[in-house]
Simulated assay, not measured.
Amino acid sequence: MAEIIQKGATWTFDGAALRLTPGRERSAGLLRRTLGELLVPLDALAGISFERGRRSGRLRLRLREGADPLLQATGGRLAECHDPYRLTVGPDRYGVAAYLVEEVRRALPDRVPVGPVDAYLLPGPSLPLSASAGDGTVSFDGHRVRLEWNRRTEEAKAATGPRALPVAGIAAVEWLPAAGPETGSLRFAPRAAPVATPPRYDPNAVELWGFRRDPLTALVAAAVQARLPHPSTAAPARLPHPSTAAPDRLPPPPATTPLRHPAPPAPPAPPAPSGRPPHAPVFAVPAPRRERWLAGPGAPPEPRPLGPRAGAGAAVPVGDQDAVLRRLRELGELHRTGVLTEEEFRLAKQAVLHRP
């Protein structure tokens, strides 16, 4: 038996499993204290290491891929103070740490594989769980994920009301912590709608703004992950990254093998009827504009709609204050729904207000 006691945690090895007991001080991290004691069986271990430093050392456990739902859900993005498989060791305990590593390595026989596993070997966090986030609260009772909003929630998202997602209807879960000015998120991908919108507007996600209690949402993600099909049996749906999940920025189609010979050029479009402009593809022309073209050149003029990208900063007639206000409202709506980014909205607004 080998044991090392530090402020962050106590690690005990009895020859068959490692027992990781978090410390009671703040150095243990909020997530580790809430997660509680972990019992890591020998079959779940892929290795252990100890790194000596001038002021402190690091004990690190390496688990087999797919053995722990917490690591599966967080994808290695946990900060060191919240990672239960890392332990800071003081210089006066270097010898004890080295002895623990030697005992664990000696107990790891060749019969224990180090490759991926086909089932979780750790049970995941205890239930029920609840955690607050930037724009809402997420809770899980083992059967349903419940999302409730607060006063900081985007209006369109809050209008959907509280959400209750059964585990059977969830295809994937993804946890991204806040990093610097970039917000994070906890997102649940429903099986019926795998394509996600940005977390700010997604009713199946909560935003993480870097608050102290944000890491507790990782426990909710791990508890849900433990009840989804194991990655070795079913490939989980991949969620788009928040920075590329805008409505007009869908993931590009998969690349195809180029043809051996270049494809023949497309035949020219047939000439348009006299007095009418040529018809553009349906997906590229808004419906009101097509109707006006079909009506012919004699139709009364109509206000030109603003597209999602093109024309965002088009000038308005000088002195037409109503048109200026209408254009600003249109830009504000496009920005609120995520069609225009913050930078594009700022430039478009300047183009309207400070036109020559």
Rank of each mutant, 00 (worst) to 15 (best):
2 A>H: 05
2 A>K: 06
6 Q>C: 13
7 K>P: 11
12 T>S: 14
13 F>G: 00
14 D>R: 08
25 E>N: 13
29 G>H: 04
31 L>D: 00
32 R>H: 11
35 L>R: 09
36 G>T: 05
39 L>N: 12
41 P>Y: 09
43 D>Q: 14
48 I>C: 12
49 S>H: 10
50 F>C: 00
54 R>D: 13
55 R>I: 14
58 R>V: 13
58 R>I: 11
59 L>T: 06
67 A>K: 06
67 A>C: 07
69 P>L: 04
73 A>P: 02
83 D>M: 07
86 R>M: 10
86 R>N: 07
90 G>E: 08
92 D>W: 11
94 Y>F: 09
98 A>M: 15
98 A>G: 14
101 V>C: 06
104 V>R: 02
106 R>Q: 15
106 R>C: 08
109 P>E: 03
112 V>E: 11
114 V>Q: 15
117 V>Q: 07
120 Y>D: 05
123 P>V: 00
128 P>S: 01
131 A>I: 07
131 A>E: 05
137 T>R: 13
137 T>S: 09
138 V>I: 05
138 V>E: 03
138 V>W: 02
139 S>L: 08
140 F>W: 02
142 G>D: 11
145 V>S: 10
148 E>L: 04
149 W>Y: 02
156 A>R: 15
157 K>Y: 01
159 A>P: 04
161 G>T: 07
162 P>W: 05
164 A>T: 04
169 G>H: 08
171 A>K: 02
173 V>A: 04
174 E>C: 12
176 L>C: 10
176 L>E: 10
177 P>L: 09
177 P>E: 07
180 G>K: 08
180 G>W: 03
181 P>F: 07
182 E>F: 09
185 S>Q: 12
186 L>Y: 00
190 P>M: 01
191 R>A: 04
194 P>M: 01
199 P>M: 10
206 V>D: 11
207 E>V: 15
213 R>A: 14
217 T>P: 03
217 T>M: 03
226 A>W: 00
227 R>M: 02
231 P>M: 03
231 P>Q: 05
234 A>G: 04
234 A>I: 11
235 A>H: 13
236 P>W: 09
236 P>T: 08
240 P>D: 05
244 T>H: 10
247 P>F: 01
255 A>W: 13
258 P>L: 05
259 L>C: 13
265 P>S: 06
265 P>G: 06
267 P>C: 03
268 P>R: 04
268 P>T: 03
270 P>R: 02
272 A>Y: 10
273 P>Q: 03
276 R>L: 15
277 P>N: 01
278 P>A: 02
279 H>R: 08
283 F>S: 07
286 P>E: 09
286 P>L: 13
291 E>A: 15
293 W>G: 03
298 G>S: 10
301 P>W: 01
306 L>G: 02
306 L>F: 06
311 G>H: 03
313 G>D: 08
320 D>A: 10
328 L>P: 04
336 R>I: 03
337 T>C: 12
338 G>P: 05
340 L>C: 10
341 T>K: 07
343 E>N: 06
344 E>F: 06
345 F>C: 07
346 R>T: 14
351 A>R: 12
351 A>Y: 05
353 L>Y: 08
354 H>N: 13
